[in-house]
Design a protein around this nucleic acid. Structure first.
Length: 585
RNA sequence: GGUGGCGUAGUUCAGUUGGUUAGAAUGCCGGCCUGUCACGCCGGAGGUCGCGAGUUCGAGUCUCGUCGUCACCGCCA
């Protein structure tokens, strides 16, 4: 038996017992005649003591110990003469009688501590060591718990957990597929699923009624802090439901998780139409922990002789509460922020609302106090506030104002990681115009149903048709999304037509689904939560990397196992593949 | 595909206007120390300044390229 207890178990009540512990050496403190060793496992740290009374062999053995050695220690639990109230086991120590070095360890490239001294590079290369650190392990424990509570909740709601295939078929819509060559079918390829979308719809047709799966999805697109090429979804689908049923069910799941995992009561799940989100927040995933709404002041701003505004399609403003005392330097920082190519504004106009009721702006030459007062009224600015104004083409400026708003939210401390504000964004457009391909593509996916009241626009103005689609946004993070599906093969055919598929192409790609619809498809709808994002939100992290045991870096590489990698010529041969690398310039 | 940040000891970082032998902390190694728990004290080792070219009498420092990494834009039904 390697151990009778873990390193987090022992308490004063164990005093006098003979126990055996196994773990890693966290740290050693040699005080001449006596030596203390902190022994660590995932449950905690227990102090081992070897003192003057011990045998020479034992003294020599403990002297040999280095960081991260794996050891087994047998001994008697005793009360400490000087206690440590910082750790759970701090009242006791193990007076070692027998010490086995189970495995020595080379010195790790970074020390295993909560506040690591290793950079991201090293941590990723030695991820198995990084995972020994408490903060990273705790993230994965959190993830495990959230998976557990998700399953428990959905089981309780009669959902059936069903696995769907990972080797499937490439489809033209959506993200790039990862493809996998088939040895037995020369020249043909599987694709890894971007999501189990069509399978879960087929399960509805099979009468499964309520399906869920915590499942890997794969998208071959560029990475971000919150995007990995393989990621995990809580994927669900329900039959005989409308949008309202889905929203209620998954509000329930979200509440359940917050309550069970964080002991936080989340009550409000407001609904906001997509159009309102864009107008007020400049994006489709507003952070509603704070107001600072975008106001259209185009008409007010164009009342005078300021060329920049007069030539702009749109002039928009936000009011930063209490920022009226911003210095020249701070305003310059904001100006540089909005002028970054990623934000894309040409410049920034500010209006300081002074405590004495006067205004100081960067456009005082063009606007008098009356004008600026009108701006203040429009933005809700009062004495002590700062109005920030951007102008230009409407859509880019809304997007820039969104960035600026979040920046100001950060600067003013309005984005508390311990406050959680969910929001349903609803009534998304059905279609999006793709300027490059000169055609529409589905904003959500091609199986999303249009709103009934917009059916009449399908022919005349497809871009204006709204969909029965919804996103769950929490604190400005898109946590999940879904839609009410089309369950009528004729409407589905119409949809493919709008997306520019010929009937033949549609049949080749999705014929199986349209066929299935002919055999009694129930009305159904679904949703998928980004599990990694949800966990990182709960963990208070900005990146999903640290809630994934073995993540990939910015360029989609696993630097630990060094993948992707080339394969042997023989493997390519077997698959009838030949490389066609582009010549280096 | 693009924009920007970073790259100096095992690690985290500092390094002045381009100027002598590149520093600190921590870690590591050795010694001393009987109640430490970020132990303490003394001593020691440890550097391809990512790589390559260029400018210069002289480059960690400036320029160009390249590689790695991070953040973002495009992209992500």
């Amino acid at each position: 038996m390697y151990r009778t207890h873990t390193c987090g178990d022992l308490r004063i009540s164990h005093a006098g017992q003979e126990v055996t512990l196994s773990g890693w050496v966290q740290r050693k403190r040699e005080l001449g005649a006596m030596t203390f060793v902190d022994l660590r496992d995932r449950y905690g740290i227990t102090q081992l003591v070897v003192d003057d009374q011990s045998s020479d062999d034992l003294k020599e053995a403990v002297h040999q110990l280095g960081r991260e050695y794996v050891v087994q220690a047998k001994g008697i639990v005793r009360e400490r003469s000087s206690k440590n109230d910082k750790i759970e086991t701090g009242e006791v120590e193990l007076a070692v009688t027998e010490l086995n070095i189970l495995n020595p360890a080379e010195l790790p490239p970074f020390t295993i501590e909560d506040e690591t001294d290793g950079g991201d590079d090293l941590r990723m290369k030695y991820r198995y060591l990084d995972l020994r650190r408490n903060p990273v392990r705790e993230n994965l424990v959190l993830r495990s718990q959230m998976g557990h509570y998700t399953r428990a909740y959905l089981n309780e709601q009669n959902f059936i957990e069903t696995e769907t295939p990972v080797l499937i078929k490439s489809t033209p819509e959506g993200a790039r597929d990862f493809i996998v060559p088939s040895r037995m079918n020369e020249g043909q390829f599987y694709a890894l699923p971007q999501s189990p979308q069509v399978f879960k719809q087929l399960l509805m047709i099979s009468g499964f009624d309520r399906y869920f799966q915590i499942v890997k999805c794969f998208r071959d697109e560029d990475l971000r802090a919150d995007r990995q090429p393989e990621f995990t979804q809580i994927d669900c689908e329900m039959s005989f439901v409308d949008q309202e049923d889905i929203l209620n069910t998954f509000e329930g799941l979200t509440r359940h998780l917050f309550k069970k995992v964080k002991d936080v009561e989340v009550t409000d799940f407001p609904r906001m139409p997509y159009s309102e989100a864009i107008a007020n927040y400049g994006c489709d995933k507003p952070d509603i922990r704070f107001e600072m709404l975008i106001k259209d002041i185009t008409a007010l701003a164009q009342a005078k002789d300021f060329k920049v505004f007069n030539e702009a399609e749109f002039v928009g403003a936000i009011c930063a509460k209490g920022a009226g005392s911003y210095t020249r330097k701070q305003l310059d920082e904001l100006t540089n922020f909005v002028k970054r190519p990623q934000v894309g504004a040409k410049g920034l106009v500010y209006v300081k609302c002074n405590e004495d009721g006067t205004f100081k702006s960067s456009v005082d030459k063009f606007y008098d106090a009356e004008d600026l007062k009108a701006w203040a009224e429009a933005t809700g600015a009062e004495a002590g506030d700062l109005i920030l104004v951007l102008s230009g083409d409407k859509n880019p400026m809304l997007s820039a104002l969104c960035d600026l708003r979040l920046e100001m939210g950060d600067r003013l401390g309005l984005r508390d990681k311990n406050v959680f504000k969910p929001l349903w964004v609803v009534d998304f457009p059905l279609l999006e115009w793709d300027e490059e391909a000169k055609r529409f593509h589905a904003m959500h996916h091609p199986f999303t149903s249009p709103k009934k009241e917009d059916y009449h626009l399908l022919e005349s103005d497809p871009g204006a048709v709204r969909a029965n689609a919804y996103d769950l946004v929490i604190n400005g993070v898109e946590i999940g999304g879904g839609s009410v599906r089309i369950f009528d093969s004729e409407l589905q055919a119409k949809m493919f037509d709008l997306l520019g598929f010929t009937p033949e192409e549609a049949k080749a790609q999705f014929g199986f689904l349209m066929n299935a619809f002919k055999y009694g498809a129930p009305p159904h709808a679904g949703i998928a939560f980004g599990f990694d994002r949800l966990v990182s939100l709960f963990a208070g992290l900005d990146t999903i990397r640290d809630v994934i045991a073995f993540p990939k870096n910015n360029s989609g590489r696993d630097v630990m196992i060094d993948s992707p990698s080339t394969v042997a010529e023989a493997q390519l041969d077997e698959l009838n593949l030949a490389l066609n690398m582009k010549e280096e310039k």
